[in-house]
Design a protein around this nucleic acid. Structure first.
Length: 183
DNA sequence: ACGAGGATGCTCT
DNA sequence: GAGCATCCTCGTC
């Protein structure tokens, strides 16, 4: 089965799509400053089937973007301080999404260091990754297919991945819906 | 290596 | 008013 487009990449059950995103890239371009990472850590959130999802109880002011088309970015504020980013996979009003939790910088490292205010631990957490890429609430509801925050296919063969329970959730804490690139 | 605690603000009950 | 899909610093071992 071959992949013909990024939309195809995002099509399917969110628990199949999420691990498939490992090795793919997120590239942002703001005022001609380009930063790019290769994804190494993701989590799946399965809407009304998933008590840990922000969309478990339906649409709220915060989570509207999750009900948008496949490829919509859902950016929310975490613990009052950080921004975290998801890519919507459900489409058709189905609020399934993949939380981007970590990556490896492959382009624009100086800009990432400037945004993070340090030179180490640039992208090894959802808040850090989002900050390094310059993504904020202003980008909520934009599309990773056409917007300033772009999802790009992997440059090489898919990496070996490993499934674990999700981080920091209290509901459905046993579901192994977090995937990381195996070291 | 690991754990505790603080910063900080918004969402939903 | 409670509870966060977190991060950082500073203790201690």
């Amino acid at each position: 089965m071959s992949r013909s487009s990024i939309v195809d990449l995002l099509t399917g059950d969110v628990r199949e799509v999420a691990p498939r995103l490992l090795g793919c890239r997120i590239r942002t371009r703001f005022d001609d400053v380009v930063t790019e990472v290769e994804l190494t850590e993701v989590e799946a959130y399965a809407g009304d089937e998933d008590p840990a999802s922000h969309a478990y109880r339906g649409m709220t002011r915060r989570n509207v973007a999750m009900f948008g088309p496949r490829g919509t970015l859902y950016v929310y504020r975490s613990y009052g301080i950080h921004w975290c980013m998801n890519i919507v996979t459900g489409g058709d009003g189905i609020p399934h999404a993949v939380l981007l939790r970590g990556g490896r910088p492959i382009r624009g490292r100086p800009a990432m260091e400037a945004r993070r205010g340090r030179a180490d631990r640039l992208t090894d957490g959802p808040g850090k990754l989002t900050e390094a890429l310059g993504v904020t609430g202003a980008h909520d509801h934009t599309s990773v297919l056409t917007g300033p925050v772009r999802l790009l296919d992997a440059l090489r063969a898919p990496p070996a991945v490993e499934a674990t329970p999700r981080i920091g959730v209290s509901k459905a804490a046993d579901e192994p819906w977090r995937w990381v690139v195996r070291d």
